[in-house]
């Protein structure tokens, strides 16, 4: 019993120290977002603001045409939500096809998809831009929404989950005269909600946080999502810590709130995906 207490204590102290390191940048960023630029130039480092101001947030959200953070935020929201919906529809249908429909070469086709995941996406970057350009999608939301829905991993994840659902359920629906669309919407979709929740959360966060791709396909400042937008903003507020921190915090609010309410799914799904792959 004594031994156990020692190891618990050591673990606790270690974790507490590490947590402080993890929390500090966020806490300081939060406090700094209320600092006045003049104070920072005058006093140098401080933990708390000398004078608390909310002008940084006001500037960014309401009257700043060179860094339209509110607009970026809305752009990101539209892109991420639309992509999530698109991915859910496309992926669940594909998974239904690969598990519930019989057709020639089905498993071969799926193995081919899986093998394609080995190809590094970096080679795609330049030609993908050309395709988007040809479609006339540069500087449109579509450029950020559609290509991401081609990812194979989500199909794999949903398919794995769907395999575990007994076929008898489909069959009894079929006896009652249901066709594939009815089975898909009435039987399958309700049953795969857990895995779809995970796919939705991951799609939304990765879409919201995507950086390299949107920074290539958006050069119109008003159309840009917030993640590449912040890079431009960084160049404008090099030493203006108040504005820079406010912008960064505005950008992390949606995923932070999502995490607060759905933490369980994020933490579960990591072990789900690793269990499947490893």
């Amino acid at each position: 019993m004594k031994k156990l207490n020692i190891s618990t204590l050591i673990s606790f102290v270690f974790l507490l120290c590490m947590t402080l390191i993890w929390i500090f940048p966020l806490a300081w960023a939060f406090l700094s977002s209320f600092k006045d630029e003049v104070d920072i130039q005058t006093f140098g480092f401080s933990m708390l603001p000398v004078h608390w101001v909310i002008t940084n947030y006001q500037d960014l959200l309401f009257d700043n045409s060179s860094t339209p953070v509110a607009k970026w935020f809305m752009n990101s929201m539209i892109i991420s939500v639309t992509q999530t919906v698109l991915v859910l529809v496309v992926v669940s249908m594909a998974a239904y096809g690969y598990t519930r429909l019989r057709f020639k070469g089905r498993d071969w086709l799926f193995s081919f998809l899986l093998a394609s995941m080995m190809f590094p996406a970096v080679v795609n970057l330049i030609p993908l831009y050309k395709i988007i350009d040809t479609l006339g999608w540069v500087n449109t939301y579509w450029a950020a929404i559609v290509p991401g829905a081609a990812a194979v991993f989500n199909v794999f994840l949903v398919r794995q989950f769907m395999i575990g659902i007994p076929l008898e359920l489909d069959e009894s629906a079929r006896i009652d005269g249901a066709n594939d669309f009815q089975i898909y919407t009435k039987v399958t979709l309700p049953l795969i909600k857990p895995v779809l929740t995970v796919v939705a959360l991951f799609t939304f966060t990765s879409s919201w946080n995507d950086f390299l791709w949107p920074s290539i396909v958006f050069n119109d400042i008003d159309r840009m999502p917030i993640t590449p937008g912040l890079q431009l903003l960084q160049g404008m507020y090099v030493t203006d810590i108040g504005h820079a921190m406010s912008a960064a915090l505005i950008a992390i609010v949606p995923t932070f709130i999502l995490y607060l309410f759905t933490q369980r799914y994020f933490l579960q799904s990591m072990s789900l995906t690793s269990g499947v792959k490893g």
């Binding site: 940048p25 966020l26 960023a29 966060t205 919201w208 946080n209 995507d210 950086f211 917030i226 993640t227 590449p228 937008g229 912040l230 890079q231 903003l233 960084q234 820079a244 921190m245 912008a247 960064a248 915090l249 950008a251 992390i252 995923t255 932070f256 999502l258 995490y259 994020f266």
Partner: peptide, 12 residues
Amino acid sequence: LFSISAVMIIWS
């Protein structure tokens, strides 16, 4: 959960 650009602004 945070984007690389937000994190890099904070850390720079």
